[in-house]
Design a protein around this nucleic acid. Structure first.
Length: 724
RNA sequence: AUCGAGUUGGAGUAGUCAGGUUAUCUCGUCGGGCUCAUAACCCGGAGACCGGUGGUUCAAAUCCACCACUCGAUACCA
């Protein structure tokens, strides 16, 4: 039997899922999973919550709770939302039997995951793929004596080459030079600028990615015909830059501890990027241990003795590509090499772990033209979406509009348009026509009135046409071209509508027996068979309606046992459900939806505002340290070197001016600001912003959602007046 | 500003890596038909200088160069 593993990038358990995650990962993975099962293959699907890493500790600190509480909460919420969306995570064991696989939505805080990661760590360590190296890293010591290592991006200071302020840890934007972060002058922590900061030696392990460069290039070459353009480009980029060792440990306390007993390692954890990707393998093993035989995972992970390999398909957004085409294959080759004692190779030996078959990374789903953003509240959250809408309608829209080749957009108007005019008008209506027409024909109880007309006419041509559509869909699905596949299936229902139109069965419903009647109703019977086929072939995309339809058709058999390629069987028996047929979907009303979404957005904002009111108070003395003054904008120019900056000259006294860089480009035209009296911070430490010294900051109101308004004066005041 | 991706009828989209007869499909629109069906369905028409300019070629949406615009990552900010 053919073995297939479907992997979906692990959602970060730091918030609820939004539609972007669904379109890019969750939905395509589930469609592929259901499709592969329906081809009779033995399939496992593995993913789960990514629960370690800094952002989760930051959220925990903000809410003043343990990080575990955060991840527990969001794991629960996201797991439920995915199941509500119809993703197949609920059936850990395939309904056809354990030999057909199953699914597991795990989490990286799972003790067994941690244990396996430590095991893999040791294997790589003992084979020389993890090298210890001393780093000099900044460490901040806050007033209460706590020390904390700071990643380079959280450190800034003066550039050792050109003395510009605001240089980052290892690179100066000013003169472009790079240097050791320890050379930085007057370094400070970006997160806590008052904290004492000093350089300390810290030991870390580095994964020797460079040792895999050649083999990864060979591997990448072998995938050129399979990978999508974005995957090829991103991978090539990484390989061309030259691979360097990458740190796999960090100084922090939330994460997986190292499998080394030395005391110096007790304050360090395995870097989340290194550990979370291994979840694909650990989750497969954990699934085996929990639901099958402990060694069964090998069927989906190792090359068979006959030379065949299980198929691995990874779903993710474009930001994740290098992790799946460079880093993860390198780790797998590392593990293979460690176990066999041979050199790393992309030429997988029998019994070794296999590399990915395809990485059909998605581009991004945008929301009304802008990117989904948690902090800017610009998102449609999956849980709240599902409270109000049929999951199949979302699955339809995101499938037919999937960001396969480039970014696509979620707009409520388009969602309503596609659902009403395509899904319901074409497909829903075809089903409903067949159902209601058939139910009007008189027939003894419990028998499908079309049964006696089945196979009376000649439908060879129609059969041929339909099997062409199905084969097209199968070809598309094998290449993970979901839009194309769904379109092919939808064409079948349009074709079915044509059949009904031409055969005019409504004319013969309860008429006298005649040749015409036999012909017409045999076409209707044929369409009944088409409905059965559609229930099966549309199932990967729209599972809920598939169940409803199957029930309306009076089918009692397990639909999951039917093969995709046999879905349209025109000689099979037809059954009967005497209850009145109901439309598969309800029409959507754009006015209602916009109304509701507006009010949901409003609620969210209120909630967040309440939260912001809980901020810490500052002392009056602290406030008085900020010196704000008035000034007049007397000149304004574009910043030569930055997109969003203006260089503003402010008259801040009778005979003095100062230059301030302000991030107002794109918000104000130059003329709108020229001559205005504004308020600025006068005693802000001057600092160069992308090459130009800025001596202060113009005050402006910001609603957090892109709307900005500069503070001006109610009446003319002398320049340089105090503001308090 | 740097790097990466994209730009195809009113909207969305296929085709671009492997150049070649009337440039795909869906929606919308217009005309006709049907009346079983959720104002639905069926047939037909109109509508595209394939972002711009130049080049390579017998032949360019497709290859090359430059430019414009959009999106993303990074930087900058309020």
């Amino acid at each position: 039997m053919e073995h297939v593993a479907i992997f979906m990038a692990w959602p970060y358990a730091n918030g609820p899922l939004h539609l972007g995650h669904v379109a890019g990962n969750c939905l395509p993975a589930d469609i592929q999973y259901r499709y592969e099962r329906s081809r009779g293959r033995s399939v496992i699907m593995c993913s789960g919550s990514d629960e370690h890493g800094t952002p989760i500790t930051v959220t925990a600190e903000q809410e003043n709770v343990n990080p575990q509480e955060i991840v527990d909460r969001y794991h629960e919420i996201n797991n439920k939302a995915l199941i509500d969306l119809g993703c197949s995570w609920e059936d850990n064991i395939d309904r056809r039997g354990i030999e057909y696989g199953g699914a597991l939505y795990n989490r990286t805080t799972d003790p067994r995951h941690k244990e396996l990661v430590r095991e893999f760590f040791m294997e790589l360590h003992d084979s020389g793929y993890l090298k210890q190296q001393t780093m000099q890293q900044y460490c901040s010591i806050s007033s209460d004596g706590k020390t904390k290592f700071l990643p380079d991006r959280y450190v800034e200071g003066e550039c050792p080459v050109c003395n510009a302020d605001g240089a980052r840890g290892d690179q100066c934007d000013e003169c472009g030079s790079t240097y050791e972060s320890s050379d930085l002058i007057n370094p400070r922590s970006k997160m806590d600028p008052d904290a004492k900061i000093e350089i300390r030696d810290t030991e870390h392990f580095f994964f020797q990615l460079n040792k895999f460069q050649d083999q990864l290039e060979i591997h990448s070459l072998s995938k050129q015909k399979i990978w999508k353009p974005n995957v090829k480009a991103m991978t090539k980029n990484w390989l061309n830059m030259g691979l360097r060792p990458r740190a796999v440990t960090r100084d922090m306390d939330w994460g997986i501890g190292l499998p080394l007993s030395d005391k110096e390692w007790s304050t360090k954890r395995i870097y989340v990027w290194f550990e979370a990707v291994q979840g694909y393998l650990t989750c497969s093993r954990i699934w085996s241990e929990k639901f099958a035989n402990a060694d069964d995972w090998k069927k989906w992970w190792t090359k068979n003795s006959d030379g065949t390999e299980p198929k691995h398909i990874y779903f993710m957004g474009k930001d994740n590509i290098p992790f799946h085409t460079v880093i993860w294959p390198a780790i797998i080759m590392g593990l293979n090499s460690a176990r066999s004692g041979t050199k790393p190779t992309s030429d997988i030996a029998i019994g070794d772990l296999v590399l990915e078959s395809n990485v059909p990374a998605m581009e991004y789903l945008m929301l009304q033209g802008g990117q989904f953003s948690k902090s800017r509240k610009h998102a449609v959250w999956l849980p709240s979406f599902l409270e109000n809408h049929d999951p199949d309608t979302l699955r339809y829209f995101l499938s037919i509009n999937m960001p396969e080749g480039h970014d696509t957009d979620f707009r409520w108007e388009e969602y309503v348009d596609k659902v009403n005019n395509e899904l319901i008008s074409t497909y829903g209506n075809f089903i409903h026509r067949v159902m209601t027409l058939t139910h009007r024909i008189e027939s003894p109880d419990g028998i499908n009135p079309l049964a006696k007309y089945l196979n009376l006419g000649n439908h060879d041509e129609a059969e041929l046409k339909i099997s062409k559509f199905v084969n097209d869909a199968i070809d598309s699905m094998e290449k993970q071209r979901f839009k194309e596949a769904l379109r092919s299936i939808m064409n079948i229902s349009q074709f079915g509508n044509g059949l009904i139109q031409h055969s005019e069965p409504w004319k013969y419903i309860n008429s006298e027996e005649s040749t015409e009647k036999n012909e017409s109703l045999s076409t209707l019977a044929f369409c009944w068979q088409v409905c059965k086929g559609l229930a099966v072939t549309l199932r990967p995309f729209l599972p809920f309606q598939s169940d409803r339809l199957w029930n309306m058709l009076g089918e009692k058999s397990e639909i999951d046992n039917l093969l995709y390629e046999d879905a349209f069987n025109f000689t099979s028996d037809i059954h009967w459900n005497s209850s009145k047929p109901m439309p598969l979907f309800a029409r959507l009303d754009i006015e209602n939806i916009l109304e509701r979404e507006k009010s949901i957005a409003g609620q969210d904002e209120e909630k967040i505002e309440l939260k912001e009111q809980e901020v810490k108070y500052i002392d009056f003395e602290d406030f008085m340290k900020v010196e704000m003054k008035t000034g007049k904008v007397i000149a304004i120019d574009d910043h030569p070197n930055a997109d969003k900056l203006y260089v503003v000259t402010i008259e801040d006294g009778p005979d003095s001016t100062r230059t301030v860089c302000a991030g107002l480009k794109g918000i104000y035209e130059k003329e709108q600001l020229l001559g205005k009296q504004v308020v600025f911070v006068a005693n802000l430490k001057p600092r160069k912003l992308r090459g130009i010294m800025s001596e202060g900051m113009i005050l402006a109101a910001d609603d957090g959602d892109g709307k900005v308004s500069v503070l001006t004066l109610d009446s003319e005041m002398p320049n340089g007046s105090q503001v308090r």
